[in-house]
Design a protein around this nucleic acid. Structure first.
Length: 949
RNA sequence: GCCCAGAUGGUGGAAUUGGUAGACACGAGGGACUUAAAAUCCCUUGACCAUUGCGGUCGUACGGGUUCGAGUCCCGUUCCGGGCACCA
């Protein structure tokens, strides 16, 4: 029988056993309550896992195992997000085909993951680049193409219903989310040819082909979604991004903006991530007002959230990209306007973001304020964005800082509208105060409308009401959330199941899916944006024979070109949680039975960096599938835990300038030194292994050291874990040296799951020592198994049940670090008690199983069990064992602890106060004093407030 | 600029939500065992004063406040992290 805690042997044994027993494979079992735990599946990047990656997986694994022990049927799947830019960029950098590198990376990931002892059901693995998987990505896209969003019903409906509406009434009474407001009659609809009809419907489809401004990244050779662009450069690679008008597939995410916002109230996510999504969705309620252009029959619409300030409008501003610019510009101003437009066009997105200097030009035209009747000049300026609202604003310099800066620059009038607001130096933007000058004294306004004397908030409401009642405009809600650009000019992604018949996009029939990614010789992207799929020879659709054929056969009558774009990275990751419920189903994305059983994800664990990407798209995608009746819950992820990042802890050596001599940290200030990153793997407790350092790199072979106390002490700093900082710690190495159970324990012991923290291998010894101590509860020094049938003592039971109480509560609240502390305390206690009771030791093994499954199995087996510890029962808490018969209470006088006393647990407040006052220690505090207040918090404190008599 | 979340020993972090701050662990110092090392075990470890004994004072970023009592609640300030940002 084993004596030493031989983790290597134990972990190998149980990994094999679990595979043999299919321990972690689950099936739908309507007799048992389900619980769905999910990790954000990884991109299999080339660098492999570092010690930070498994953090979230370990946290969710503990929860999954705990839930399983508590009697739930737990689904805990894993897979790979293997399509998209990261995988492809890696392939390009290493000069290999993305398919090859992706599969190699997946194997490497799997190997690493397997060492850590997760309870993943690998029989349900999905890979987004697998045709059997992306068939359903393509299928969902086609469903979106075949749907529109009905604003009256608040949900997606079949496009056929919209067509029927057009046939009958044209756009009259239409309630559909759309790109632009169109108006046509039934006759006009019927008179359209196929192409015009197709184009018209694109304005309503949820997946649509649109001519829009996109983020074009020439270096990556593709367009990017808004969340893939950060500070004007690409998230991946940091390459410049420019605005370009292109024909692209888009998803009408904006139609779901309100539902995406409302849904946040129904889910258990952190406030910060909800806040981030709220900001990203950016709802703002305001009014759209029609503005007539003087001496012309043109009019335009502005959007404002400050309807109350209409009396302070002194000019209007159009976005340079607005179609109105050409219509309004007068002949005299044309030259100047053109010059300005050319200037704006020359500026990159990044320049526009950083540089906020005031620029603009007068169009020559005047707009008429519908309430005051005043004629105000119309300007064109880049500070107004074409993509938001209507691309036109009314400017109120007194109460908007941007308008203020513009007015000052162009010497335009500023009319204050709030009593007491000083606008001589800056605008008054706050929505507070009493309204004045609305209208100004002696002036009249439309229908005698006046806001004077109201508070700003009342004035906003009153103006909205007035504007809509008098047909001057309407109340309107705007969202910052834009439609998602859904196509990429890259190779490594899902192909679109679309072909072009005389230029009209048509769907490849559902039965013919998936449309598999064709092999191409050259998959590199091009700066001009020619998609790599253009290099595919077998890439044409034979409509009659319903198959993919050589594109040489294209004849525009029966054989048509297939779409060359591919889908973006978020396509495959948007509904993968549904596929795990039924991963091998060839007939449906997920069967009704399985969707009903598993419902939605109960616990989702992943990084907060996906807040405005994946977590928005997924919610949108799921809502769409919910409208179709596929998904059984409106929100995909009920509870979300964002694990923090594990940062690296870098070490430094200090080289004296122009030498090869290195000086220890404490002495470095005496020299002129340069800090140099040193590999953390040759440093222990900040002490450098100098021999290893000499061997590390050739240039250090002759290195000399100035030591302190015979040691070379390194400096340290917390930085991102990355190869270039030499602070990457590989989990494989930790598993080899300490075992997976120690790794799991230590990752959780490091601190709260949701917090970012630096990795420091040094502390790991403490966790490893604990496991050895835990082991020693079962095996004594002579290698004898200690458990026997002796009755547990009251002390034993108390230690155990204290632990049950703490661990159960801590797992539920993801406070794993404190429950590990509790394990350490309980183990020490039981060790001191020399506890040999089988009843206690069995429960201890079950309690540790979620954290350290391997050692738990080994001990469970040693206890004579023949089934896996995973199938045991979570111990039940019996509070009776925790009841104290005596309580120690600190006695305070005037809020300060003076001494402590012991009382029977059931002592009354009065008797305790009396005893405290009669205690000999109390005498000096009571001398010449009288008690004015007595406070007793049972089990906590007794406080007597005294005052001189 | 707006919004959100933080700040506790040399280090990672606890504190039952207003009740003895610093659990647990690392590191450090001292000791035991050993020829020696490793491993293991024991003691000390927030600061300062007193250590001839119990002990005392100050301490949770800073400044105020509420309270018998504040790391925890309120007001103000500083610093770090995250989100949004010419969004009308």
């Amino acid at each position: 029988m084993a004596k030493e805690y031989n983790f290597q042997e134990i972990e190998k044994k149980w990994h094999e056993q679990w595979t043999k027993w299919h321990t972690y494979e689950v099936s739908e079992d309507s007799a048992r309550k389900k619980f769905y735990v999910l990790n954000m599946f990884p991109y299999p990047s080339g660098a492999g896992l570092h010690v930070g990656h498994p953090l979230g997986y370990i946290a969710s694994d503990i929860y999954a195992r705990y839930k399983r022990l508590s009697g739930f049927n737990v689904l805990n799947p894993m897979g790979y997000d293997s399509y998209g830019l990261p995988a492809e960029q890696y392939a390009i950098q290493t000069g290999q085909h993305p398919e090859k590198t992706t599969y190699a990376n997946i194997d490497r990931y799997r190997e690493q993951l397997d060492k850590i002892g997760f309870c993943f059901d690998w029989s349900r693995e999905v890979r987004t680049c697998d045709p059997g998987y992306y068939k359903w990505t393509q299928w969902a896209f086609q469903k979106m193409f075949g749907s529109y969003f009905c604003t009256a019903a608040g949900k997606a409906q079949l496009i056929e219903q919209l067509i029927a509406h057009f046939e009958e009434k044209g756009t009259e009474g239409l309630t559909a989310a759309c790109g632009e407001e169109l108006a046509f009659s039934a006759e006009e609809w019927k008179a359209m040819d196929e192409k015009e009809k197709s184009q018209t419907l694109m304005n309503y489809r949820i997946a649509f082909l649109g001519e829009t401004m996109v983020n074009w990244c020439p270096k990556l050779g593709t367009v990017l979604a808004n969340d893939e662009v950060i500070d004007g450069v690409s998230e991946r690679g940091g390459y410049p991004v420019e605005q370009k008008k292109m024909r692209q597939w888009c998803l009408r995410v904006s139609a779901y903006a309100q539902r995406l916002l409302d849904g946040l109230q129904t889910i258990e996510w952190s406030d910060s991530i909800k806040e981030t999504q709220k900001n990203w969705i950016g709802r703002s309620e305001g009014a759209e007002v029609q503005i007539k252009v003087a001496d012309s029959d043109v009019d335009f619409t502005i959007f404002t959230t400050r309807a109350d300030t209409m009396f302070g409008v002194t000019f209007f501003v159009l976005a340079p990209e607005s179609e109105l610019v050409a219509k309004l510009t007068t002949a005299e101003q044309k030259e100047e306007v053109d010059k300005y437009l050319a200037y704006v066009k020359s500026r990159t997105e990044r320049e526009r973001m950083i540089d906020h200097t005031v620029t603009g030009v007068f169009s020559g035209a005047y707009g008429i304020n519908p309430i005051t009747g005043d004629k105000c000049p119309i300007y064109i300026a880049e500070y107004v964005l074409s993509g938001y609202g209507t691309g036109a604003i009314m400017a109120v310099p007194a109460h908007d800082s941007r308008d203020y800066a513009f007015a000052r620059h162009f010497n335009l009038p500023i009319i204050p509208l709030v009593e007491g607001a000083d606008v001589s130096e800056e605008s008054y933007d706050a929505k507070e105060g009493t309204v004045m000058n609305s209208p100004m004294e002696g002036k009249t306004s439309f229908k005698g409308f006046s806001l004077n004397g109201l508070s700003v908030k009342e004035a906003i409401a009153a103006t909205k009401k007035f504007v809509s009642e008098n047909g001057l405009g309407r109340v309107k809600v705007n969202f910052r959330l834009r439609d998602a650009i859904f196509s990429r000019q890259r190779y490594w992604g899902e192909p679109f199941p679309v072909y072009y018949k005389q230029g009209i996009p048509c769907m490849i029939p559902e039965e013919c899916l998936p449309v598999e990614l064709p092999q191409v010789e050259n998959f590199l992207p091009t700066e001009s944006g020619e998609p790599p799929l253009g290099n595919a020879q077998l890439w044409a659709w034979d409509e009659a024979n319903r198959k993919i054929v050589d594109k040489a056969l294209i004849d525009e009558k029966t054989v048509f070109p297939i779409e060359l774009f591919t889908m973006p990275g978020f396509a495959g990751s948007s509904a993968y949680y549904l596929r795990y419920m039924d991963p091998k189903n060839g007939e449906a994305l997920v069967s009704e039975n399985n969707a009903q059983y598993w419902q939605n994800v109960d616990l989702y664990v992943g990084g907060s960096e996906h807040a405005t990407g994946h977590l928005i798209y997924s919610r949108f995608w799921n809502k769409f599938l919910f409208d179709l009746g596929i998904s059984s819950k409106e929100e995909p992820f009920q509870k979300l835990i964002n694990q923090g990042m594990i940062q690296g802890r870098s070490n430094f050596v200090y080289r004296i300038k122009d030498t090869n001599t290195f000086v220890s940290l404490g002495l470095k200030d005496q020299y002129d030194t340069t800090p140099i990153h040193v590999d953390v793997n040759i440093v222990k407790n900040d002490v450098l292994d100098t021999d290893a350092f000499k061997a590390w790199r050739p240039e250090y072979e002759t290195a000399e050291f100035i030591l302190e106390d015979g040691k070379y002490i390194c400096g340290w700093a917390v930085e991102k874990m990355s190869k270039s900082m030499f602070n990457v710690v590989n989990p494989d190495m930790i598993v080899e040296k300490y075992g997976a159970d120690t790794l799991r324990l230590y990752e959780m012991f490091l601190g709260p799951v949701e917090q970012s923290k630096p990795w420091d291998t040094n502390g790991i010894d403490g966790c490893h020592r604990f496991l050895k101590k835990f082991w020693a509860l079962y095996w004594d020094k002579e290698g004898q198994f200690t458990a026997n049938d002796s009755e547990p003592t009251a002390e034993n039971l108390k230690s155990l049940h204290k632990l049950i109480k703490k661990v159960s509560a801590d797992i539920e609240s993801f406070s794993y670090n404190t429950s590990i502390s509790a394990f350490m305390v309980a183990t020490t206690e039981l060790g001191q008690q020399k506890c040999c009771s089988r009843a206690i030791l069995e429960q201890m093994a079950v309690l540790i199983a979620p954290f350290c499954p391997h050692i738990a199995e080994e001990l469970w087996e040693a206890l004579g069990k023949t089934t896996s510890v995973c199938d045991a029962q979570w111990p039940e808490l019996n509070e009776d064992y925790l009841v104290e018969d005596k309580v120690k209470m600190p006695i305070q006088f005037n809020g300060k602890v003076r001494f402590t006393m012991e009382f029977p647990a059931d002592a009354s407040k009065e008797s305790m106060i009396e005893a405290a006052m009669n205690a000999p220690e109390a005498a000096k505090f009571l001398k010449g004093m009288q008690v004015v207040k007595q406070i007793v918090v049972p089990g906590r404190i007794i406080n007597l407030v005294v005052k001189p008599e």
